[in-house]
Design a protein around this nucleic acid. Structure first.
Length: 686
DNA sequence: ACCCTATTGATTTTT
DNA sequence: TCAATAGGGT
């Protein structure tokens, strides 16, 4: 039988309608609501309907009083999606929580700076406290007060040397600093401790300086800025990042009743999408506003839409939402609109809670779930054998746990490994995946972005279907006659090479040899560095990928950059296709986490015991499945994390799901069978 | 044989 | 940043 997922009985239609009506009534009664919908239940659909209901019912009144409805999403992508599906309306303000909170508070700079000053003072206190408590500071504590400030001054004057040497091995680091330290050389016994001391002292120094500058009203110190692109506060530069923004928002709203009154007045309806991933502090903000609105007898409506079992990020509130916002009325939806019943059955088993979904469709049979146990080394073979019928139009989507595996299976492993071995990405290890694998080019790192632009350019030039205006900017196009444009295009078409380096050499070769001003303009804007030559590109790459260059690592740096440039163009093209979602093969690879919110007809999941630092991650879930009630604290947290991640992955599948478990399951095979059915042994030979 | 320190290498994702 | 491990000292 073929799964159609098309027919809904009248009865089911009515049940679904009753659920939505319940939300509508709560909106009318200003009864704050938590709408729990399992995966594929049509949660976003319900959210859209609710927004539409609020607009249709209260739109006129809202408009007359210059009031608006707020809808908060977890990501920018979700913001766009909801804007698209809701259609154009000025009454609903859709945005991420960060954008909204910043919008709430950024106009009150005097109060913000005051809050910032308090924060700086608190931070200094905490850091000073560290120097008196923590064991890393033991040697530092033994110094006299004079010596402490002398030491600070010496280090501060030699900041450059300190940072240049920062990433050297312990021996070289000591060597490099020995001459400047003088009598304080004894502090540098343990490199990690020493760095901790100096970093802390520098931070205290910076913060104190900033406090002084605020007091003296120095230019630039009269406003707090939110830096969307940075993941770190730079408090001493008056810049805050995401978490501190939420904290300041919370503090401001808590402190100023006038602000509360304004917000409650202006926004009588607030909808929060994916509440389970929302930070606790955000729920507290909502709770505060709602409490206040009740107190002044103008109650607002707050609606949370989500599913606690799909909480896969650690700082999301998840099931604890009740601790931060009390008195919420729960509305559950137990229909599934996405998957075949075979998948829904397995998903219910995994979540194993009070929400038991059934398909809303009559024609929901005919899907499949297969569970295999095999060896990690057979994964490639397994995927190959199980994707024989897949096509580019109807591909199989394969989930891996790490970006490294995704890179490997997608055919750009060398690229991934080379970038991860550079100094910059070793230091900012957590930036690697964002800056190398983000599908949003504005988030790519400087060098990945440069290469991305070059690869994009070369692919476009090679592609016969690309129109001229797609490659050339308007100014170039407008300032040339047709025959000049033809000469330029012919020149661009001559760019060639098997490696990235060859291609860049080819581009730079024409730059020197051909006297074509337009070509030079095109290339200048492509590279966007001072000189368009291969030497300058290499220099630029070394400078960015090895920001703290020393003689010791110079050879390594040069070699690594050469290796990056010498990779096959094909590998870069595969990377480019991955980033742009232009999938050419019949298998598409994803990390588990990135599939959230998506759905695919055919899914393969490669699963094992471990994930990250946790050697026992998924096996801990299976082992405790039958009796998870006794788990507490850390173990319970781990159990839930593994369950949620597995639940999210499995529920992506619409029709067919295959799982390859690459570790031994004999310790919990009964549980696996009760969830997934028969365990099949996979080996390359059969 | 044991303890402490230095070094190395590693998850995911969002704003 | 943090945990595992390698390695040196007692």
């Amino acid at each position: 039988m073929i799964v159609m997922l098309s027919q809904i009985s009248r009865e089911n239609q009515q049940i679904e309608k009753a659920t939505i009506d319940k939300i509508f009534r709560n909106i009318d009664d200003k009864k704050c609501t938590i709408f729990n919908a399992g995966a594929g239940a049509g949660k976003t659909y319900a959210l859209i309907l609710s927004l539409k209901y609020a607009v249709n019912t209260y739109g006129k009144m809202l408009k007359e009083h210059n009031r608006q409805i707020i809808c908060i999403t977890y990501t920018n992508v979700a913001t766009e999606e909801i804007k698209k599906r809701l259609g154009n309306t000025s009454i609903v303000r859709i945005s991420t929580i960060h954008e909204r909170i910043w919008n709430f508070i950024h106009g009150y700079q005097k109060e913000l700076v005051e809050l910032h000053l308090e924060n700086l003072i608190k931070q200094v206190d905490e850091l000073v406290e560290q120097t008196t408590n923590q064991k890393e500071f033991e040697l530092y504590r033994q110094l006299s007060n004079d010596d402490k400030s002398n030491f600070f001054n010496i280090m501060f004057e030699n900041k450059d040397t300190y940072y240049k040497s920062y990433n050297l091995g312990a021996k070289d680091f000591k060597q490099a600093l020995s001459s400047i330290l003088g009598v304080y050389a004894s502090l540098l016994k343990n490199v990690a401790h020493f760095k901790k001391i100096v970093n802390t002292l520098f931070r205290i120094g910076n913060y104190k300086k900033c406090i002084q500058n605020i007091h003296e009203s120095k230019p630039g110190y009269n406003e707090v800025l939110y830096n969307v692109l940075s993941n770190r506060d730079q408090l001493h530069r008056m810049k805050i990042s995401h978490d501190t923004l939420l904290e300041y928002g919370y503090q401001m709203i808590k402190k100023y009743d006038l602000l509360k009154r304004f917000l409650v007045d202006k926004y009588p309806f607030m909808f929060i999408d994916e509440y389970q991933d929302t930070k606790e502090i955000v729920i507290s903000v909502m709770d505060m506003l709602q409490q206040f609105s009740v107190d002044i007898k103008h109650p607002i409506f707050v609606g949370y839409f989500g599913d606690s079992v799909q909480n896969i990020y650690e700082d999301g509130v998840g099931t604890n939402i009740g601790n931060f916002h009390s008195g919420l009325e729960v509305v559950n939806k137990e229909f599934n609109r996405r998957s075949a019943q075979e998948i829904v059955y397995v998903a219910n088993k995994i979540r194993n809670d009070e929400i038991v979904q059934s398909s809303i469709f009559e024609d929901c049979q005919g899907g499949s779930v297969e569970f295999y146990v095999g060896d990690e080394r057979d994964a490639t073979d397994f995927i190959e054998k199980n994707t024989l019928n897949a096509t580019k139009e109807n591909p199989v989507h394969c989930f891996m746990l790490t970006n490294k595996s995704v890179a490997q299976f997608s055919g750009f492993e060398n690229l991934y490994l080379l970038f991860s071995s550079t100094q910059y990405y070793k230091t900012y290890y957590q930036q690697l995946n964002t800056e190398l694998l983000s599908d949003d080019p504005s988030k790519l790192g400087e060098i990945p972005l440069l290469i991305f632009r070059i690869v994009k350019f070369i692919n476009k030039v090679r592609n016969e279907e690309t129109s001229i205006t797609d490659v050339l900017t308007y100014s170039i196009y407008a300032n040339n006659n047709l025959s000049q444009v033809k000469v330029l295009v012919d020149l661009l078409k001559r760019i060639e090479g098997t490696t990235l380096l060859n291609n860049i050499q080819s581009i730079c070769g024409f730059y020197q040899s051909e006297d074509n001003l337009s070509y030079k303009k095109v290339i200048d804007s492509l590279f966007d560095i001072d000189e368009s030559s291969i030497v300058d590109i290499k220099r630029y790459m070394i400078q960015k990928l090895y920001p703290n260059m020393t003689e010791e690592i110079e050879d390594d740096a040069r070699k690594n950059v050469e290796n990056i440039l010498n990779l096959e163009m094909n590998e870069y093209t595969r990377w480019y296709d991955y980033l742009t979602g232009n999938h050419l093969g019949n298998v598409v690879y994803h990390t588990y986490h990135r599939t959230k919110g998506l759905e695919f007809d055919n899914v393969i999941i490669v699963l094992g015991n471990s994930f990250g630092k946790e050697r026992n991650y998924f096996n801990l879930f299976f082992k405790n499945y039958k009796d998870s009630g006794h788990l507490i604290d850390e173990d319970l947290k781990k159990y839930e994390q593994a369950r949620n991640l597995l639940y999210v992955s499995v529920t992506r599948a619409v029709k067919n799901l295959k799982i390859l478990y690459i570790d031994d399951v004999s310790g919990f095979s009964d549980v696996v069978e009760s969830i997934f059915g028969e365990i099949q042994v996979y080996s390359r030979d059969n």
